[in-house]
Design a protein around this nucleic acid. Structure first.
Lengths: 154, 154
DNA sequence: CTAGGACTTGAAGTCGACTTCAGGTCAAGG
DNA sequence: CCTTGACCTGAAGTCGACTTCAAGTCCTAG
């Protein structure tokens, strides 16, 4: 009565519009990244705002966040009734991480530029040049470096 | 005779210096990301330049490249005898990808900043605001979007 | 000689992010 | 009515990047 069914999207339409596979959308639902939509005759009917959410998921993911991280980012968006302040806070918490990612990529860009222009006869010379340029750290053989134990990327 | 053994590193030392687990280093060797080092009494003895290589692997990986991609980048470095020109070319080919990654992250940064300052009462309003700001694309429901089929980010 | 620690190998296990599969449901069209 | 196509569910499979395990080797110290 209140809202028109023509505003609601099938999973196929959402898949088409977002560029994701339907299986991925169902998976995101299971993981709680998008709210479980209403069913009509057993089939999902999505409100259009799910597309915005999916776009956020894709951006966050391509930027190197895990789905779990993206999820913590998204709980702020329309997740609770507590208004946009929750998102505000989370976004502020995430910004440093994003900026760290940016720094890593900028470093890689500089390294690649250096490599692209490099005239070094061998690897060791090249490494030394990059160390002099501050692009890579010098190896410290004697010290116990900060080991990140559960290092999972990928 | 020619080179001093004190210049060569055990896998433990390499692990320590690089911050990687020995198992990861062996894995990289199996995958061809680092050359298979000489063995002394069955044990690996690495030349110090492997550290530079490992650093490159870590940078590339944290920047979002798969090991396979990092590998294509690294074949240029000290891989062949053909001098640094191979690397030059590869680095130049990779730069656009890195820059695309940078753009994505910058987009995420802008989205997060917008979200952090957002006063929107609900998700749809927020989505509209971001669309107006050009931060996210408008959904095109009727068109067949460019579907990337084998989308694996991991 | 024996024990210890660092290392070796190959095989198997894990984790995230999905995809694929098998078997069933629903609504529309002929 | 029956078929077709889009959709449903739960379970299992896959892929990359490792880690963990089991069983064995090498070198040094006591």
């Amino acid at each position: 009565m209140s809202s028109d069914a023509s505003e609601l999207l099938s999973i196929g339409q959402v898949a088409q519009a977002s560029g994701l596979a339907s299986s991925a959308i169902r998976y995101y639902e299971r993981c709680g990244l998008i709210p479980s939509p209403a069913r009509v005759g057993g089939k999902r009917r999505f409100e259009t705002d799910v597309l915005f959410r999916l776009e956020m998921i894709q951006i966050g993911q391509e930027a190197g966040f895990s789905l779990e991280e993206v999820k913590t980012l998204l709980v702020g968006i329309g997740g609770g009734r507590r208004g946009p302040r929750a998102l505000t806070k989370l976004a502020q918490e995430k910004l440093p991480e994003v900026r760290a990612g940016l720094e890593r990529l900028k470093l890689l860009e500089r390294v690649l530029k250096a490599a692209a222009e490099c005239e070094c006869p061998d690897l060791e010379t090249c490494a030394q040049a990059m160390r002099r340029a501050g692009l890579v750290r010098s190896p410290r053989l004697g010290r116990k470096g900060l080991r990140r134990p559960g290092r999972r990327l990928g």
